[in-house]
């Protein structure tokens, strides 16, 4: 359960203020599948960053599972990111030095899980995302689709309740993009809240709820019966 109340985020460029988010009110129930669309610069990424506790709003309230998270300390926010939120990025953001398996293992390591348990979980994830053959490969040796699968495996390894994906298919061709989307949708089917920012109308239409943004404001918010 996500509830945003009067969230505002302003950036200052010189003496000019840019309202990246302007008085956003939004409620997303657990297990929803939401797509966010809108022109470039409309505030989609900013919204996602605030939902993911990577960025702080200038004003407004953000409640996650009935708990006000806006005022939590840095360490507490890090813990929420670690345990409840999974990020998937357009440019994958894999650590180039680490193998696929090691990249997937990172969140587990950060959480303090002992090594033996980590290996079991990573093994399962490699299996689930069909990456077993690529476990010891570095990102540079993987295709775009494989890289995004590694990124999704990493985002989900902690079994978060919310997946935030910022244009996850932006760097992939259409077919691979569709495959990646169905992977994310699988997670949604298993109960994870899925929030996807996309430019692709077709992909956006697959979500059960579509939010349209413009100039830092929510313009449209419609349920999609067929999705």
């Amino acid at each position: 359960m996500i509830r945003l109340t009067a969230i505002t985020r302003t950036f200052h460029m010189g003496d000019q203020a840019v309202y990246a988010l302007n008085n956003i009110n939004l409620q997303i129930a657990s297990g929803e599948y939401v797509s966010i669309m809108g022109p470039s610069g409309s505030g989609k990424s900013t919204l996602l960053n605030i939902l993911g506790l990577l960025d702080k709003p200038d004003s407004g309230r953000y409640e996650l599972d009935e708990k006000l998270v806006t005022d939590l300390s840095e360490t507490e926010q890090a813990q929420i990111r670690r345990e409840r939120i999974g990020f998937v990025f357009q440019s994958f953001h894999l650590v180039p030095r680490l193998t696929a398996a090691e990249n997937i293992e990172l969140p587990l390591t950060l959480s303090g899980m002992p090594s033996e348990q980590r290996q079991i979980r990573v093994e399962q994830a490699l299996q689930a995302f069909e990456l077993k053959q690529r476990a010891q490969h570095r990102p540079a040796e993987l295709s775009g689709g494989q890289r995004q699968r590694v990124a999704i495996a990493r985002a989900t390894i902690m079994q978060p309740s919310v997946i935030l994906a910022d244009e996850p298919t932006g760097n992939l061709d259409h077919q691979i993009g569709a495959e990646v989307m169905s992977l994310l949708e699988d997670l949604h089917h298993r109960g994870t809240t899925l929030i996807v920012v996309t430019h692709d109308r077709e992909l956006g239409a697959r979500a059960h709820r579509q939010i349209g943004m413009r100039d830092g404001e929510i313009l449209t918010d419609q349920a999609n019966a067929t999705g």
């Binding site: 360490t75 990020f87 953001h93 990172l106 969140p107 950060l110």
Partner: peptide, 16 residues
């Protein structure tokens, strides 16, 4: 820098 940002996104605290 990008790696540090990523580590933070997946839950590393400043202390980590």
């Amino acid at each position: 820098t990008a790696e540090i940002g990523l580590l933070k996104a997946i839950g590393a605290s400043s202390v980590d």
